[in-house]
Design a protein around this nucleic acid. Sequence first.
DNA 1: CTTTTGACAGCGT
DNA 2: CACGCTGCCAAAA
Length: 125
Amino acid sequence: MHSPLNLAIYEVVACIPAGSAVSYGDVAELLGAGGPRQVGAAMAGSAGEDLPWWRVVRADGSLPRELAERARPHWVSESTPVRGSGPDRVRFPDARWRPSVDEFARIDAIAALLHRGEDRSGGDP
DNA sequence: CTTTTGACAGCGT
DNA sequence: CACGCTGCCAAAA
């Protein structure tokens, strides 16, 4: 169901470089909107969006069972820092994505569009 | 307006 | 380290 918030979330996720990862809460925080639950809900509907979904994990580096199994080969091929012999979860903070200045600017632009578009009913005065 | 529902997060036990 | 609880936010009914 692509709400503006949803699309903004997809844009941010698309910026995450290979070999790194962020938590659901991080995405919400970078965007300055919504919360971890919103990001999760957005990802649940991201099938067909062609996004690196395996780079968005829970705050403890894990993912629901089935998703972790599908993500594993990606983590390995991207040399993402992971834990367990599985490996079964990403290893924060080593894997955490630190946006460069340019990346941060792009994210901020996305956030700005979001805030601008979500409500313009107009007057306040 | 209230209730329900999530690919969540933080904290105590 | 594993659970269980409570808090959170937006959307849909």
